[in-house]
Design a protein around this nucleic acid. Structure first.
Length: 493
RNA sequence: GCGCCCGUAGCUCAGCUGGACAGAGCGCCGGACUUCGAAUCCGUAGGCCGCAGGUUCGAAUCCUGCCGGGCGUACCA
Protein backbone atom coordinates (compact mmCIF):
# COMPACT_ATOMS: atom_id res chain seq x y z
CA UNK A 1 0.00 0.00 0.00
CA UNK A 2 2.77 2.43 0.94
CA UNK A 3 4.54 1.53 -2.25
CA UNK A 4 1.47 2.40 -4.29
CA UNK A 5 1.09 5.72 -2.53
CA UNK A 6 4.71 6.62 -3.23
CA UNK A 7 4.26 5.90 -6.93
CA UNK A 8 1.18 8.06 -7.12
CA UNK A 9 3.14 11.21 -7.81
CA UNK A 10 0.96 12.66 -10.55
CA UNK A 11 -2.16 12.49 -8.45
CA UNK A 12 -3.85 10.07 -10.76
CA UNK A 13 -5.28 8.13 -7.85
CA UNK A 14 -7.46 9.79 -5.28
CA UNK A 15 -7.83 6.79 -3.02
CA UNK A 16 -6.56 3.25 -2.66
CA UNK A 17 -8.05 0.72 -0.32
CA UNK A 18 -7.95 -2.95 0.43
CA UNK A 19 -11.25 -4.61 -0.33
CA UNK A 20 -11.34 -8.10 1.01
CA UNK A 21 -9.09 -11.05 0.18
CA UNK A 22 -6.85 -10.35 -2.78
CA UNK A 23 -8.47 -7.15 -3.91
CA UNK A 24 -7.26 -3.59 -3.90
CA UNK A 25 -9.48 -0.82 -5.14
CA UNK A 26 -7.91 2.11 -6.90
CA UNK A 27 -9.90 5.29 -7.20
CA UNK A 28 -9.06 7.44 -10.20
CA UNK A 29 -8.94 11.15 -9.43
CA UNK A 30 -11.87 12.98 -11.07
CA UNK A 31 -9.67 15.36 -13.05
CA UNK A 32 -8.34 12.38 -14.99
CA UNK A 33 -11.80 11.73 -16.33
CA UNK A 34 -12.07 15.24 -17.72
CA UNK A 35 -8.84 14.65 -19.58
CA UNK A 36 -10.58 11.78 -21.34
CA UNK A 37 -13.41 14.05 -22.33
CA UNK A 38 -11.03 16.62 -23.72
CA UNK A 39 -9.11 13.97 -25.55
CA UNK A 40 -12.22 12.78 -27.35
CA UNK A 41 -12.75 16.28 -28.68
CA UNK A 42 -9.09 16.89 -29.49
CA UNK A 43 -8.72 13.66 -31.42
CA UNK A 44 -12.23 13.77 -32.87
CA UNK A 45 -12.43 11.33 -35.79
CA UNK A 46 -9.14 9.83 -34.64
CA UNK A 47 -10.40 9.02 -31.15
CA UNK A 48 -10.13 5.28 -30.77
CA UNK A 49 -7.15 4.93 -33.06
CA UNK A 50 -3.84 3.82 -31.65
CA UNK A 51 -0.39 2.74 -32.71
CA UNK A 52 -0.55 -0.66 -31.07
CA UNK A 53 -0.19 -2.34 -34.46
CA UNK A 54 3.15 -0.55 -34.92
CA UNK A 55 2.56 -0.15 -38.61
CA UNK A 56 2.84 -3.88 -39.23
CA UNK A 57 1.49 -4.98 -42.56
CA UNK A 58 -1.59 -7.15 -42.50
CA UNK A 59 -3.49 -8.61 -45.38
CA UNK A 60 -7.11 -9.49 -44.98
CA UNK A 61 -8.55 -11.72 -47.67
CA UNK A 62 -12.28 -12.20 -47.56
CA UNK A 63 -15.46 -12.97 -49.50
CA UNK A 64 -13.49 -14.42 -52.45
CA UNK A 65 -16.71 -16.00 -53.67
CA UNK A 66 -16.45 -17.99 -56.88
CA UNK A 67 -17.87 -16.09 -59.84
CA UNK A 68 -20.42 -18.78 -60.47
CA UNK A 69 -23.39 -16.94 -59.03
CA UNK A 70 -24.43 -13.81 -57.18
CA UNK A 71 -23.41 -13.20 -53.59
CA UNK A 72 -25.76 -14.61 -51.00
CA UNK A 73 -26.27 -13.77 -47.35
CA UNK A 74 -23.41 -15.93 -46.16
CA UNK A 75 -21.03 -13.91 -48.31
CA UNK A 76 -22.64 -10.81 -46.84
CA UNK A 77 -21.67 -11.86 -43.36
CA UNK A 78 -18.12 -12.57 -44.44
CA UNK A 79 -18.04 -9.21 -46.19
CA UNK A 80 -19.21 -7.35 -43.12
CA UNK A 81 -16.84 -9.21 -40.82
CA UNK A 82 -13.84 -8.85 -43.12
CA UNK A 83 -14.39 -5.24 -43.98
CA UNK A 84 -14.95 -4.23 -40.37
CA UNK A 85 -12.04 -6.29 -39.13
CA UNK A 86 -9.84 -4.53 -41.66
CA UNK A 87 -11.11 -1.14 -40.47
CA UNK A 88 -10.52 -2.10 -36.86
CA UNK A 89 -6.98 -3.28 -37.61
CA UNK A 90 -6.34 -0.07 -39.46
CA UNK A 91 -7.59 1.96 -36.51
CA UNK A 92 -5.33 -0.05 -34.25
CA UNK A 93 -2.30 1.04 -36.22
CA UNK A 94 -1.79 -1.79 -38.66
CA UNK A 95 -1.18 -1.19 -42.31
CA UNK A 96 -3.99 -3.15 -43.90
CA UNK A 97 -4.61 -4.43 -47.39
CA UNK A 98 -7.93 -5.96 -48.33
CA UNK A 99 -7.95 -8.56 -51.04
CA UNK A 100 -10.49 -10.59 -52.99
CA UNK A 101 -9.27 -13.80 -54.59
CA UNK A 102 -11.18 -14.58 -57.75
CA UNK A 103 -11.56 -18.27 -58.54
CA UNK A 104 -11.88 -17.66 -62.25
CA UNK A 105 -10.31 -20.90 -63.35
CA UNK A 106 -10.76 -24.60 -62.85
CA UNK A 107 -13.55 -27.07 -62.67
CA UNK A 108 -16.33 -24.89 -61.35
CA UNK A 109 -15.80 -22.32 -64.03
CA UNK A 110 -15.91 -25.08 -66.62
CA UNK A 111 -19.17 -26.26 -65.12
CA UNK A 112 -20.46 -22.71 -65.23
CA UNK A 113 -19.51 -22.44 -68.89
CA UNK A 114 -21.21 -25.70 -69.67
CA UNK A 115 -24.36 -24.61 -67.86
CA UNK A 116 -24.52 -21.43 -69.92
CA UNK A 117 -23.73 -23.32 -73.10
CA UNK A 118 -26.60 -25.73 -72.55
CA UNK A 119 -29.00 -22.86 -72.00
CA UNK A 120 -27.61 -21.27 -75.13
CA UNK A 121 -28.31 -24.42 -77.13
CA UNK A 122 -31.85 -24.44 -75.84
CA UNK A 123 -32.35 -20.93 -77.20
CA UNK A 124 -31.66 -22.33 -80.68
CA UNK A 125 -34.11 -25.15 -80.29
CA UNK A 126 -31.55 -27.70 -79.24
CA UNK A 127 -32.55 -28.38 -75.69
CA UNK A 128 -30.26 -30.68 -73.77
CA UNK A 129 -30.85 -32.02 -70.30
CA UNK A 130 -28.92 -30.22 -67.60
CA UNK A 131 -26.58 -32.47 -65.69
CA UNK A 132 -27.11 -32.52 -61.96
CA UNK A 133 -23.95 -30.55 -61.22
CA UNK A 134 -24.95 -27.70 -63.54
CA UNK A 135 -25.93 -24.29 -62.23
CA UNK A 136 -29.60 -23.75 -62.71
CA UNK A 137 -30.44 -20.26 -61.57
CA UNK A 138 -32.29 -17.84 -63.80
CA UNK A 139 -29.14 -15.75 -64.08
CA UNK A 140 -27.64 -18.56 -66.19
CA UNK A 141 -30.42 -18.12 -68.74
CA UNK A 142 -29.88 -14.37 -68.75
CA UNK A 143 -26.22 -14.83 -69.52
CA UNK A 144 -27.04 -17.33 -72.27
CA UNK A 145 -29.39 -14.81 -73.83
CA UNK A 146 -26.57 -12.27 -73.76
CA UNK A 147 -24.26 -14.69 -75.54
CA UNK A 148 -26.90 -15.35 -78.18
CA UNK A 149 -27.48 -11.63 -78.69
CA UNK A 150 -23.80 -10.86 -79.17
CA UNK A 151 -22.55 -13.99 -80.87
CA UNK A 152 -25.62 -15.16 -82.74
CA UNK A 153 -25.51 -18.83 -83.68
CA UNK A 154 -21.75 -18.73 -84.14
CA UNK A 155 -21.14 -21.06 -81.22
CA UNK A 156 -23.30 -23.79 -82.72
CA UNK A 157 -20.68 -24.55 -85.35
CA UNK A 158 -17.77 -24.61 -82.97
CA UNK A 159 -16.12 -27.42 -81.20
CA UNK A 160 -18.02 -27.80 -77.98
CA UNK A 161 -15.01 -27.17 -75.76
CA UNK A 162 -14.30 -23.85 -77.45
CA UNK A 163 -17.91 -22.79 -77.17
CA UNK A 164 -17.99 -23.73 -73.52
CA UNK A 165 -14.81 -21.75 -72.93
CA UNK A 166 -16.35 -18.66 -74.47
CA UNK A 167 -19.44 -19.08 -72.36
CA UNK A 168 -17.34 -19.63 -69.24
CA UNK A 169 -15.26 -16.52 -69.74
CA UNK A 170 -18.25 -14.38 -70.44
CA UNK A 171 -20.27 -15.77 -67.56
CA UNK A 172 -17.46 -15.38 -65.05
CA UNK A 173 -16.79 -11.81 -66.16
CA UNK A 174 -20.43 -10.86 -66.01
CA UNK A 175 -21.05 -12.47 -62.65
CA UNK A 176 -17.88 -10.93 -61.27
CA UNK A 177 -19.02 -7.51 -62.41
CA UNK A 178 -22.28 -8.11 -60.56
CA UNK A 179 -20.42 -9.18 -57.42
CA UNK A 180 -18.35 -6.02 -57.55
CA UNK A 181 -21.48 -3.94 -57.82
CA UNK A 182 -23.08 -5.72 -54.89
CA UNK A 183 -20.02 -5.22 -52.74
CA UNK A 184 -19.89 -1.56 -53.63
CA UNK A 185 -23.54 -1.18 -52.66
CA UNK A 186 -22.72 -2.96 -49.42
CA UNK A 187 -19.98 -0.38 -48.79
CA UNK A 188 -17.23 -2.92 -49.02
CA UNK A 189 -14.09 -1.94 -50.88
CA UNK A 190 -11.00 -3.93 -51.78
CA UNK A 191 -7.45 -2.78 -52.44
CA UNK A 192 -6.74 -5.72 -54.64
CA UNK A 193 -8.60 -8.18 -56.83
CA UNK A 194 -6.42 -11.20 -57.37
CA UNK A 195 -7.21 -13.52 -60.25
CA UNK A 196 -6.57 -17.23 -60.03
CA UNK A 197 -6.43 -17.40 -63.80
CA UNK A 198 -3.49 -15.00 -63.77
CA UNK A 199 -1.57 -17.48 -61.62
CA UNK A 200 -2.30 -20.30 -64.02
CA UNK A 201 -1.49 -18.27 -67.12
CA UNK A 202 1.74 -16.83 -65.76
CA UNK A 203 2.95 -20.33 -64.97
CA UNK A 204 3.18 -19.57 -61.27
CA UNK A 205 1.14 -22.62 -60.40
CA UNK A 206 3.34 -24.91 -62.45
CA UNK A 207 6.51 -23.38 -61.07
CA UNK A 208 5.33 -23.77 -57.50
CA UNK A 209 4.46 -27.40 -58.08
CA UNK A 210 7.78 -28.13 -59.76
CA UNK A 211 9.71 -26.50 -56.95
CA UNK A 212 7.93 -28.61 -54.38
CA UNK A 213 8.44 -31.66 -56.53
CA UNK A 214 12.20 -31.23 -56.63
CA UNK A 215 12.15 -30.80 -52.88
CA UNK A 216 10.28 -34.06 -52.51
CA UNK A 217 7.24 -32.44 -50.93
CA UNK A 218 5.07 -33.22 -53.92
CA UNK A 219 5.22 -36.79 -55.23
CA UNK A 220 3.48 -38.93 -57.81
CA UNK A 221 1.17 -41.75 -56.85
CA UNK A 222 -1.50 -43.53 -58.93
CA UNK A 223 -0.72 -41.10 -61.77
CA UNK A 224 -1.75 -38.14 -59.62
CA UNK A 225 0.45 -35.60 -57.84
CA UNK A 226 0.16 -35.47 -54.06
CA UNK A 227 1.30 -32.90 -51.53
CA UNK A 228 2.80 -34.30 -48.34
CA UNK A 229 0.44 -32.31 -46.18
CA UNK A 230 0.55 -35.11 -43.61
CA UNK A 231 4.10 -34.23 -42.86
CA UNK A 232 2.84 -30.86 -41.63
CA UNK A 233 -0.03 -32.04 -39.51
CA UNK A 234 -2.85 -32.77 -41.96
CA UNK A 235 -4.58 -36.10 -41.54
CA UNK A 236 -3.79 -37.26 -45.06
CA UNK A 237 -1.91 -36.15 -48.13
CA UNK A 238 -3.82 -34.09 -50.68
CA UNK A 239 -4.05 -34.23 -54.43
CA UNK A 240 -2.60 -31.31 -56.34
CA UNK A 241 -2.94 -32.60 -59.89
CA UNK A 242 -5.46 -35.30 -60.70
CA UNK A 243 -4.68 -38.44 -62.66
CA UNK A 244 -6.46 -36.88 -65.64
CA UNK A 245 -3.99 -34.00 -65.59
CA UNK A 246 -6.34 -31.38 -64.21
CA UNK A 247 -5.06 -29.31 -61.33
CA UNK A 248 -7.17 -29.03 -58.19
CA UNK A 249 -7.94 -25.73 -56.55
CA UNK A 250 -5.34 -26.61 -53.97
CA UNK A 251 -2.71 -26.27 -56.70
CA UNK A 252 -3.70 -22.67 -57.31
CA UNK A 253 -3.96 -22.05 -53.60
CA UNK A 254 -0.36 -23.08 -53.14
CA UNK A 255 0.78 -20.58 -55.72
CA UNK A 256 -1.57 -17.96 -54.35
CA UNK A 257 -0.34 -18.28 -50.79
CA UNK A 258 3.22 -18.31 -51.98
CA UNK A 259 2.53 -15.06 -53.76
CA UNK A 260 0.93 -13.58 -50.67
CA UNK A 261 3.79 -14.69 -48.45
CA UNK A 262 6.34 -13.20 -50.82
CA UNK A 263 4.61 -9.85 -50.69
CA UNK A 264 6.05 -9.42 -47.22
CA UNK A 265 3.04 -9.16 -44.97
CA UNK A 266 3.68 -9.60 -41.28
CA UNK A 267 0.39 -11.34 -41.04
CA UNK A 268 -2.09 -12.78 -43.50
CA UNK A 269 -5.67 -13.32 -42.44
CA UNK A 270 -7.87 -15.65 -44.48
CA UNK A 271 -11.55 -15.21 -43.76
CA UNK A 272 -13.62 -18.17 -44.89
CA UNK A 273 -17.06 -19.59 -44.46
CA UNK A 274 -16.99 -22.24 -41.76
CA UNK A 275 -17.76 -24.94 -44.29
CA UNK A 276 -14.19 -24.55 -45.56
CA UNK A 277 -12.56 -25.36 -42.26
CA UNK A 278 -11.33 -28.72 -43.52
CA UNK A 279 -9.04 -26.72 -45.75
CA UNK A 280 -7.01 -25.17 -42.95
CA UNK A 281 -4.51 -27.99 -42.34
CA UNK A 282 -3.81 -28.06 -46.07
CA UNK A 283 -3.02 -24.37 -46.38
CA UNK A 284 -1.15 -24.42 -43.13
CA UNK A 285 0.97 -27.28 -44.49
CA UNK A 286 1.60 -25.29 -47.61
CA UNK A 287 2.73 -22.25 -45.60
CA UNK A 288 5.16 -24.35 -43.63
CA UNK A 289 6.46 -26.20 -46.65
CA UNK A 290 7.23 -22.85 -48.23
CA UNK A 291 9.41 -22.10 -45.24
CA UNK A 292 7.25 -19.68 -43.31
CA UNK A 293 6.15 -19.80 -39.70
CA UNK A 294 2.79 -21.43 -39.29
CA UNK A 295 1.22 -18.42 -37.60
CA UNK A 296 2.07 -16.06 -40.44
CA UNK A 297 -1.29 -17.00 -41.92
CA UNK A 298 -4.27 -17.14 -39.61
CA UNK A 299 -7.81 -18.18 -40.29
CA UNK A 300 -11.09 -16.67 -39.32
CA UNK A 301 -14.00 -19.02 -39.90
CA UNK A 302 -17.32 -17.28 -40.15
CA UNK A 303 -20.21 -19.56 -39.25
CA UNK A 304 -23.07 -19.85 -41.65
CA UNK A 305 -26.15 -17.69 -41.77
CA UNK A 306 -29.61 -19.16 -41.31
CA UNK A 307 -31.94 -16.94 -43.20
CA UNK A 308 -35.38 -16.68 -41.68
CA UNK A 309 -38.58 -14.92 -42.48
CA UNK A 310 -40.80 -14.45 -39.48
CA UNK A 311 -39.03 -17.28 -37.76
CA UNK A 312 -39.39 -19.71 -40.66
CA UNK A 313 -36.23 -20.90 -42.42
CA UNK A 314 -35.72 -19.84 -46.02
CA UNK A 315 -34.35 -22.75 -48.02
CA UNK A 316 -31.24 -22.13 -50.05
CA UNK A 317 -29.13 -24.03 -52.53
CA UNK A 318 -26.70 -22.35 -54.89
CA UNK A 319 -26.75 -25.13 -57.45
CA UNK A 320 -30.50 -25.26 -57.72
CA UNK A 321 -30.51 -21.50 -57.96
CA UNK A 322 -32.77 -21.10 -54.97
CA UNK A 323 -31.25 -18.56 -52.68
CA UNK A 324 -31.76 -15.11 -51.38
CA UNK A 325 -29.05 -12.87 -52.68
CA UNK A 326 -27.18 -10.26 -50.71
CA UNK A 327 -28.63 -7.69 -53.05
CA UNK A 328 -32.17 -8.72 -52.20
CA UNK A 329 -31.37 -8.51 -48.52
CA UNK A 330 -29.86 -5.05 -48.92
CA UNK A 331 -32.89 -3.88 -50.85
CA UNK A 332 -35.26 -5.30 -48.31
CA UNK A 333 -33.68 -4.33 -45.01
CA UNK A 334 -31.12 -1.71 -45.98
CA UNK A 335 -27.35 -1.89 -45.84
CA UNK A 336 -27.08 -0.38 -42.36
CA UNK A 337 -29.37 -2.95 -40.78
CA UNK A 338 -27.78 -5.79 -42.73
CA UNK A 339 -24.22 -4.87 -41.81
CA UNK A 340 -25.07 -4.27 -38.19
CA UNK A 341 -26.94 -7.57 -37.92
CA UNK A 342 -24.07 -9.51 -39.46
CA UNK A 343 -21.68 -8.06 -36.90
CA UNK A 344 -23.89 -8.61 -33.92
CA UNK A 345 -22.62 -12.09 -33.22
CA UNK A 346 -19.23 -13.52 -32.68
CA UNK A 347 -18.27 -15.02 -36.05
CA UNK A 348 -17.99 -18.36 -34.24
CA UNK A 349 -21.73 -18.51 -33.69
CA UNK A 350 -24.18 -19.40 -36.40
CA UNK A 351 -26.35 -16.40 -37.15
CA UNK A 352 -30.10 -16.44 -37.42
CA UNK A 353 -30.91 -13.57 -39.70
CA UNK A 354 -34.60 -12.77 -39.76
CA UNK A 355 -35.56 -10.53 -42.66
CA UNK A 356 -38.71 -9.28 -41.00
CA UNK A 357 -36.89 -8.49 -37.79
CA UNK A 358 -34.08 -6.62 -39.50
CA UNK A 359 -36.64 -4.42 -41.19
CA UNK A 360 -38.51 -3.43 -38.06
CA UNK A 361 -37.86 0.11 -36.99
CA UNK A 362 -38.32 -0.75 -33.38
CA UNK A 363 -36.53 -1.63 -30.21
CA UNK A 364 -36.04 -5.17 -31.48
CA UNK A 365 -33.57 -3.77 -33.92
CA UNK A 366 -30.33 -2.57 -32.34
CA UNK A 367 -29.10 -0.65 -35.38
CA UNK A 368 -31.61 2.09 -34.80
CA UNK A 369 -30.93 2.08 -31.09
CA UNK A 370 -27.37 3.15 -31.76
CA UNK A 371 -28.13 5.43 -34.68
CA UNK A 372 -30.83 7.10 -32.65
CA UNK A 373 -28.23 8.35 -30.20
CA UNK A 374 -26.44 10.09 -33.02
CA UNK A 375 -29.65 11.62 -34.33
CA UNK A 376 -30.70 12.75 -30.88
CA UNK A 377 -27.44 14.43 -30.03
CA UNK A 378 -27.33 16.01 -33.46
CA UNK A 379 -30.72 17.42 -32.71
CA UNK A 380 -29.57 18.80 -29.39
CA UNK A 381 -26.62 20.45 -31.08
CA UNK A 382 -28.95 21.95 -33.67
CA UNK A 383 -31.08 23.39 -30.95
CA UNK A 384 -28.01 24.65 -29.13
CA UNK A 385 -26.83 26.49 -32.22
CA UNK A 386 -30.19 28.20 -32.45
CA UNK A 387 -29.62 29.39 -28.91
CA UNK A 388 -26.22 30.73 -29.80
CA UNK A 389 -23.90 27.94 -28.66
CA UNK A 390 -21.79 27.99 -31.75
CA UNK A 391 -18.56 26.70 -30.38
CA UNK A 392 -18.11 23.61 -28.32
CA UNK A 393 -14.93 24.11 -26.39
CA UNK A 394 -13.54 23.05 -23.05
CA UNK A 395 -13.66 25.60 -20.21
CA UNK A 396 -11.99 24.94 -16.90
CA UNK A 397 -15.16 25.41 -14.91
CA UNK A 398 -16.72 22.41 -16.69
CA UNK A 399 -15.01 20.17 -14.17
CA UNK A 400 -17.24 21.57 -11.47
CA UNK A 401 -20.34 21.37 -13.65
CA UNK A 402 -20.02 17.81 -14.92
CA UNK A 403 -19.85 15.86 -11.73
CA UNK A 404 -22.97 13.74 -11.37
CA UNK A 405 -22.17 10.05 -10.90
CA UNK A 406 -24.03 9.17 -14.09
CA UNK A 407 -21.97 11.72 -15.97
CA UNK A 408 -18.74 10.28 -14.66
CA UNK A 409 -20.05 6.85 -15.62
CA UNK A 410 -20.57 8.06 -19.18
CA UNK A 411 -17.02 9.37 -19.32
CA UNK A 412 -15.69 6.08 -17.98
CA UNK A 413 -17.46 4.32 -20.82
CA UNK A 414 -15.98 6.74 -23.33
CA UNK A 415 -12.55 6.09 -21.89
CA UNK A 416 -12.96 2.40 -22.71
CA UNK A 417 -13.56 2.89 -26.41
CA UNK A 418 -9.92 2.88 -27.56
CA UNK A 419 -9.36 -0.32 -25.58
CA UNK A 420 -12.34 -1.90 -27.27
CA UNK A 421 -10.83 -1.12 -30.65
CA UNK A 422 -7.36 -2.43 -29.85
CA UNK A 423 -8.78 -5.51 -28.19
CA UNK A 424 -11.05 -6.12 -31.13
CA UNK A 425 -7.98 -5.92 -33.37
CA UNK A 426 -5.86 -8.16 -31.18
CA UNK A 427 -8.49 -10.87 -30.94
CA UNK A 428 -9.75 -10.38 -34.50
CA UNK A 429 -13.25 -9.95 -33.10
CA UNK A 430 -15.16 -7.14 -34.78
CA UNK A 431 -18.39 -7.93 -32.91
CA UNK A 432 -16.96 -6.06 -29.93
CA UNK A 433 -17.61 -2.77 -31.70
CA UNK A 434 -21.42 -3.03 -31.97
CA UNK A 435 -21.62 -4.49 -28.49
CA UNK A 436 -19.73 -1.56 -27.08
CA UNK A 437 -21.81 0.93 -29.05
CA UNK A 438 -25.01 -0.59 -27.71
CA UNK A 439 -23.70 -0.22 -24.20
CA UNK A 440 -22.74 3.39 -24.73
CA UNK A 441 -26.06 4.06 -26.43
CA UNK A 442 -27.94 2.53 -23.52
CA UNK A 443 -26.05 4.67 -21.04
CA UNK A 444 -26.77 7.78 -23.05
CA UNK A 445 -30.47 7.07 -23.56
CA UNK A 446 -30.85 6.56 -19.84
CA UNK A 447 -29.03 9.77 -19.07
CA UNK A 448 -30.88 11.75 -21.68
CA UNK A 449 -34.27 10.57 -20.67
CA UNK A 450 -34.22 12.13 -17.22
CA UNK A 451 -34.83 15.60 -18.53
CA UNK A 452 -35.40 17.16 -15.16
CA UNK A 453 -31.92 16.39 -13.95
CA UNK A 454 -30.00 16.24 -17.22
CA UNK A 455 -31.45 18.87 -19.51
CA UNK A 456 -28.53 19.64 -21.79
CA UNK A 457 -29.57 23.01 -23.17
CA UNK A 458 -31.10 24.77 -20.20
CA UNK A 459 -31.39 28.28 -18.77
CA UNK A 460 -27.99 27.89 -17.18
CA UNK A 461 -25.48 28.87 -19.88
CA UNK A 462 -22.39 27.47 -18.16
CA UNK A 463 -24.03 24.16 -17.38
CA UNK A 464 -25.42 23.99 -20.89
CA UNK A 465 -22.00 24.57 -22.39
CA UNK A 466 -20.50 21.89 -20.18
CA UNK A 467 -23.15 19.33 -21.03
CA UNK A 468 -22.92 20.09 -24.71
CA UNK A 469 -19.25 19.25 -24.42
CA UNK A 470 -20.09 15.98 -22.72
CA UNK A 471 -22.84 14.97 -25.10
CA UNK A 472 -21.03 15.85 -28.29
CA UNK A 473 -18.14 13.67 -27.14
CA UNK A 474 -20.55 10.75 -27.07
CA UNK A 475 -21.66 11.62 -30.56
CA UNK A 476 -18.06 11.55 -31.76
CA UNK A 477 -17.58 8.03 -30.45
CA UNK A 478 -20.86 6.75 -31.83
CA UNK A 479 -19.95 8.17 -35.20
CA UNK A 480 -16.43 6.71 -35.09
CA UNK A 481 -17.67 3.30 -34.06
CA UNK A 482 -20.35 3.19 -36.73
CA UNK A 483 -17.75 4.32 -39.25
CA UNK A 484 -15.65 1.25 -38.44
CA UNK A 485 -18.66 -0.83 -39.41
CA UNK A 486 -19.49 1.38 -42.40
CA UNK A 487 -22.89 2.02 -40.91
CA UNK A 488 -24.24 5.52 -41.37
CA UNK A 489 -24.59 8.00 -38.52
CA UNK A 490 -27.71 9.95 -39.40
CA UNK A 491 -28.34 13.55 -38.29
CA UNK A 492 -32.00 12.76 -38.13
CA UNK A 493 -34.13 9.70 -38.54
C1' G B 1 -15.34 -43.35 -36.71
C1' C B 2 -12.02 -38.95 -36.87
C1' G B 3 -11.37 -33.39 -36.91
C1' C B 4 -13.08 -28.27 -35.96
C1' C B 5 -16.90 -25.15 -33.64
C1' C B 6 -20.88 -24.51 -30.21
C1' G B 7 -24.04 -25.87 -25.47
C1' U B 8 -24.78 -19.34 -20.19
C1' A B 9 -32.35 -16.52 -18.17
C1' G B 10 -38.56 -18.59 -22.10
C1' C B 11 -35.76 -16.78 -27.02
C1' U B 12 -31.11 -14.66 -29.29
C1' C B 13 -26.47 -13.96 -27.38
C1' A B 14 -22.04 -11.10 -24.48
C1' G B 15 -18.57 -12.41 -20.82
C1' C B 16 -10.06 -10.31 -22.95
C1' U B 17 -4.75 -13.98 -21.45
C1' G B 18 -9.10 -17.71 -14.46
C1' G B 19 -10.62 -13.32 -9.78
C1' A B 20 -15.28 -9.78 -5.72
C1' C B 21 -22.85 -11.34 -5.72
C1' A B 22 -23.05 -14.49 -13.64
C1' G B 23 -24.63 -9.71 -17.76
C1' A B 24 -27.41 -7.47 -22.10
C1' G B 25 -31.26 -7.34 -25.73
C1' C B 26 -35.89 -9.40 -27.02
C1' G B 27 -40.31 -11.57 -24.96
C1' C B 28 -43.75 -11.51 -20.36
C1' C B 29 -45.87 -8.31 -16.56
C1' G B 30 -46.35 -3.20 -14.43
C1' G B 31 -45.27 1.97 -15.04
C1' A B 32 -43.37 7.01 -17.72
C1' C B 33 -44.58 11.87 -23.29
C1' U B 34 -47.49 20.27 -21.35
C1' U B 35 -40.17 19.91 -21.51
C1' C B 36 -33.41 18.79 -26.09
C1' G B 37 -37.16 13.36 -30.72
C1' A B 38 -41.35 7.65 -26.71
C1' A B 39 -37.16 4.39 -32.98
C1' U B 40 -36.78 6.20 -25.79
C1' C B 41 -36.81 5.32 -20.47
C1' C B 42 -37.84 3.08 -15.35
C1' G B 43 -39.20 -1.32 -12.61
C1' U B 44 -40.62 -6.80 -11.46
C1' A B 45 -40.01 -11.84 -12.55
C1' G B 46 -36.72 -15.42 -14.74
C1' G B 47 -29.95 -19.13 -14.29
C1' C B 48 -27.11 -26.38 -10.28
C1' C B 49 -23.15 -21.07 -16.87
C1' G B 50 -25.08 -29.14 -20.86
C1' C B 51 -23.36 -33.36 -17.22
C1' A B 52 -19.29 -35.55 -14.31
C1' G B 53 -14.47 -35.36 -12.67
C1' G B 54 -9.58 -32.67 -12.35
C1' U B 55 -5.93 -28.30 -11.77
C1' U B 56 -6.19 -23.80 -8.39
C1' C B 57 -6.48 -19.88 -2.59
C1' G B 58 -10.27 -19.11 -6.52
C1' A B 59 -13.30 -21.97 -12.73
C1' A B 60 -18.74 -19.85 -17.09
C1' U B 61 -13.40 -19.17 -18.29
C1' C B 62 -7.95 -24.03 -18.18
C1' C B 63 -7.54 -29.94 -18.66
C1' U B 64 -10.03 -34.94 -19.32
C1' G B 65 -14.34 -37.87 -20.21
C1' C B 66 -19.46 -38.09 -21.45
C1' C B 67 -24.21 -36.18 -23.53
C1' G B 68 -26.58 -32.90 -27.19
C1' G B 69 -26.32 -29.75 -31.78
C1' G B 70 -23.74 -27.56 -36.31
C1' C B 71 -20.01 -28.16 -40.03
C1' G B 72 -16.30 -30.84 -42.32
C1' U B 73 -14.04 -35.52 -43.43
C1' A B 74 -13.25 -36.21 -52.46
C1' C B 75 -8.34 -37.12 -57.77
C1' C B 76 -15.58 -30.70 -55.42
C1' A B 77 -14.58 -25.95 -53.75
Amino acid sequence: MEHIREKNTDGMLSKVEVAGPGFINFFIAPHKWYEVLRQVHDMDAAYGTSTSGQGKRVQVEFVSANPTGPLHVGHGRCAAVGDTLAAVLCAAGFKVEKEYYINDSGLQIATLGRSVYLRYLALFGKPAPLPEEAYQGDYIRDIARGVAADEGDRLLNMKEDDAVAICAKRAADEIMAGIKEDLKAFHVSFDNWFSERSLVESGAVETAINDLKTRGIIYEHDRALWFKTRQFGDEKDRVVVRANGAATYFASDIAYHQDKLERGFDRIIDIWGADHHGYIPRISACVQALGHPKDRVCFVLVQLVNLLREGMPVAMSTRAGQFVTLREVMQEVGTDAARFSFLLRHYDSPLDFDLELAKKQSNENPVYYVQYVHARISNILRKARERGYNEIRWEDDFADLINLPEEIALIKLMQRYPDVVTQSARLLEPHRIPFYLMELAGAFHGYYHDRHRHQVVSDDPRLSAARLFLVSAIRIIIRNGLALMSVSAPQQM
